[in-house]
């Protein structure tokens, strides 16, 4: 029974994360939304593997965690650059490639 609950929870987290990515214009909030999507994916994968009882989930989750960590490193570096260069964190203002 808990598998169904976990499935629902991970899908809810995934939906909230996707809604956050699509609706937010703040750079950091979008980064956090991607983290939430990755957390939902990890939870879904772990619950499915636990339910089926086969395979090695660790390798898949290491890939998810590596993607999450790499994304944070890139995003925080960009954030610090944007703060120091006094660039707006509103991504809708960054859509133009040329002035």
């Amino acid at each position: 029974m808990i598998f169904i609950y976990l499935l629902g929870l991970s899908l809810m987290l995934f939906a909230i994360g996707i809604a956050g990515i699509s609706s937010s214009r703040h750079f950091i909030v979008m980064m956090f939304s991607v983290e939430i999507v990755l957390v939902a994916a990890a939870l879904l994968a772990a619950s499915v593997f636990s339910y089926l009882g086969t395979g090695n989930i660790l390798l898949l989750l290491f890939a998810v965690w590596a993607i999450a960590a790499a994304e944070v490193v890139v995003a925080i570096s960009l954030y610090q650059y944007m703060v120091k260069a006094d660039v707006s964190l509103d991504v809708s203002k960054l859509s133009k490639l040329k002035e």
């Binding site: 976990l6 939870l43 772990a46 619950s47």
Partner: peptide, 16 residues
Amino acid sequence: NSIMFLLIDQDLLAIL
């Protein structure tokens, strides 16, 4: 999320 991993007996995943 790590508590959720504990609830499905994935202790190593929770710690990691």
